Amino acid sequence: MRRGIYLVEEVDFRPMNSRRPLEYLTWLTRYKKEDEDLDAPELTEGLSIRSREIDLVGAFYAVGITGHPQFRAVTLWDCHGGWDGGWRQMMNIYDGVDDRLFLSDIDDLRFSAFSRPLGAVRGSPALADITAEGYAAPFYLYESARVRPGAALDYLDAVREERAPILADHGHRPIGLYEVLFCDTEVVTIWGVSLDAHLAMQRAGDAALGLDDEVEPDHRLPAWRKRARDFLDGPWRETLLAPFPGSRLSPAGRSSAD
């Protein structure tokens, strides 16, 4: 089985206008929904590439109170067929740098966008399998971490073997364990979670630190944070994402055809 290749993009909006993320996510989910009927990829004037093999799996509004800049949208894409499939199609639009590459219906809506290509590692579920199952969560835990040069795979192995069972006990399901490609210092992990599970885990962690005497502590939570420092070499952050209706990973966005 070939490696899963994905893409995560973070989009910022300026000036601080809360309607811009709404307009962007509404446009994007409708636009990609139309691609499901395409038989072959095509480059369309004003819209860039259209392809059902470049699949918008997740469109999210960043929960600003968990540490995101306000306002921000995050999208997660599945390159069906890996390097020779959706990734090749995205790269093809740069062959000759066609004028249509620079035309977009959403010019001036976004302030900035930062894309990171992701490679699935051992034990990472296939996004196509998750969406085929019909799984969707009300929130997603989004981890972005800088690791020591060359330590990405070791860190993700530790996450799979040591951290994932802890999170599973607290109602978190792994959506993806990813090495950020074309560099050797970044990883991304994504987990589905309910609000109740999120809150319960925070309290169990507080209790393990002696800061909450009303719930049972889970001392594995702070122990993992200490263990993670064996691999980390810079910023580490976890934030929450709320799925936008119309994306595959949104409970409110799934249709009977999905």
Results as ranks from 00 to 15, higher is better:
A200G: 11
I54R: 04
M1S: 08
A73Y: 10
R50F: 08
W236A: 15
P15W: 06
P117Y: 14
H68G: 02
G67W: 04
G96L: 12
D157V: 01
I166P: 03
H170G: 12
D55M: 11
G150M: 08
V193I: 12
D233E: 11
R19Q: 13
R72S: 15
K226W: 04
V193G: 07
F182S: 08
V147S: 08
E161H: 04
W224E: 13
M1W: 01
W87M: 15
Y6D: 02
M201F: 01
V63R: 06
Y24R: 05
D55P: 00
M16Y: 14
M201K: 13
Y135E: 12
V11W: 15
E10D: 00
G134L: 06
F139L: 15
T26R: 11
I5T: 05
T75R: 11
D212I: 03
L103F: 11
P125Q: 01
R225K: 05
G46I: 05
D107G: 09
G171L: 02
H68A: 13
D55G: 01
M91Q: 13
F111L: 05
D154M: 12
A223L: 10
R72M: 11
R88E: 14
A252I: 00
G150S: 04
Y94E: 07
R72A: 09
P245K: 08
P165Y: 04
D157Y: 05
S255Y: 02
N92K: 13
S18T: 11
L249E: 09
I5Y: 06
G4V: 03
G4M: 08
A242M: 12
S194H: 03
F231P: 07
G82W: 07
A73C: 14
L211G: 00
S124I: 05
I130W: 10
S115F: 09
L109Y: 06
L240D: 03
Y24L: 05
T75V: 14
K32F: 02
V147N: 05
E9T: 14
E186M: 09
E161I: 03
L47Y: 05
M91I: 08
R248Y: 12
G119W: 06
R100W: 14
L177N: 02
F114D: 13
D184M: 01
W83R: 11
D39T: 15
S194I: 07
V74Q: 09
L7I: 01
C79R: 07
F111Q: 09
A40C: 03
I106M: 11
A200P: 03
D39S: 14
E23I: 04
M201G: 09
L25S: 07
P251L: 13
T66I: 03
I65C: 10
L103A: 13
A204D: 07
R30Q: 14
R225Y: 10
L38S: 08
L47G: 02
D206K: 04
W224H: 10
D230N: 12
G150F: 01
R148K: 15
G205N: 05
